[in-house]
Design a protein around this nucleic acid. Structure first.
Length: 295
DNA sequence: AATCGTTCCTGATAGC
DNA sequence: TGCTATCAGGAACGAT
């Protein structure tokens, strides 16, 4: 599941490849998106920049913006695909497709999960692969997109140099929920999800169930430092590929190898040797060391 | 107002 | 072996 480091990796890779390119066409097969990508408006637009905000990818096109949130299994890729088969189910607008990768830097030969393609003027494409179809893609005017709640309500960027400890404390201290949930709340701090919240809490030695407003100052300090350190390290390692994250060229990230607790249930804690546990918080799983992270 | 549960989707896995 | 049931999970939305 792409979080800040994964999205940062994709955005940086993609920027180098597509800025300055013109869009020559658009294709998608998700029925609920019908009418959302008027080719007349998109065709001919020039890609000006690619940015990240939280877990959102923003592709700036002249005065328009394409916003992509990859959610769980979305991969935004730079490659070349050829649509080899498209069949229509009888339920009118429920289309079914098979897309084949024909060439490119990707390892896969066939990708059956491409649901959206931007065609570029250099014969390459930007494709969104998404097994579970949770990903969100929006196209609209610059002002319109920038004013959406998706972006406007987001909390500060954790790696922003202006996001100082004092501000961090202010945000966390006003929350009565469990710290794990607070860290994952995009409107408190943007970009942290299940993987990095677990890793951050482990490094800071804080139990995921602790109430945010009850954390002591030294704990908050540890949490703040862990947040910055872990995210910076993960960006350097090009993200975590525990299940299926891939960068813009289909390659895995390196953070999974050095992760301490996420999806390491029943393994031993790298710090104290105790067994790593897994608990549920509102449908999400949290991984932690019961010895290092006391309630 | 804050918090909880449900929904979206499909491959992997557990259980019989 | 082969089938079915359950699970994973970001964020919007509805319900309490």
């Amino acid at each position: 599941m792409p979080e800040l480091p994964e999205v940062e990796t994709i955005v940086n890779d993609l920027r180098k490849k597509i800025v300055g390119r013109k869009i020559t066409g658009v294709w998608f097969d998700i029925p609920k998106l019908r009418g959302k990508f008027p080719e007349k408006q998109i065709k001919g637009l020039k890609i000006v920049d690619v940015k990240r905000r939280g877990k959102n990818i923003l592709i700036y096109l002249d005065s328009k913006i394409l916003l992509i949130h990859q959610k769980m299994t979305g991969h935004l890729l730079y490659g070349k695909w050829k649509i080899t088969k498209v069949s229509i189910r009888q339920s009118a607008d429920k289309s079914f497709k098979v897309v084949s990768l024909i060439k490119g830097a990707l390892e896969e030969k066939v990708n059956n999960y491409i649901h959206f393609i931007l065609y570029l003027d250099n014969d390459w494409q930007v494709g969104l692969s998404d097994l579970r179809k949770f990903a969100k893609i929006l196209f609209g005017g610059k002002d319109e997109i920038e004013n959406l709640a998706d972006l406007k309500n987001l909390g500060p960027e954790p790696l922003d140099a202006n996001f100082k400890f004092v501000k961090f404390v202010k945000l966390i201290k006003t929350q009565k929920r469990k710290i794990k949930q607070v860290l994952m709340d995009q409107n408190v701090i943007a970009g942290i999800g299940n993987i990095y919240s677990d890793e951050i809490l482990w490094q800071a030695k804080i139990h995921p169930f602790r109430k945010a407003n009850e954390l002591r100052v030294n704990e908050l300090k540890n949490l703040y430092i862990a947040m910055k350190e872990i995210l910076i390290k993960a960006v350097k390692l090009r993200g975590t590929s525990v299940s299926d994250f891939r960068d813009a060229f289909g390659k895995s990230g390196g953070y999974a190898k050095i992760r301490k607790v996420y999806r390491r249930e029943n393994e031993s804690c790298p710090r104290c040797g105790s067994m790593i546990k897994r608990i549920k918080i509102g449908g999400r799983s949290a991984h932690y060391c019961s010895q290092c992270q006391k309630i």
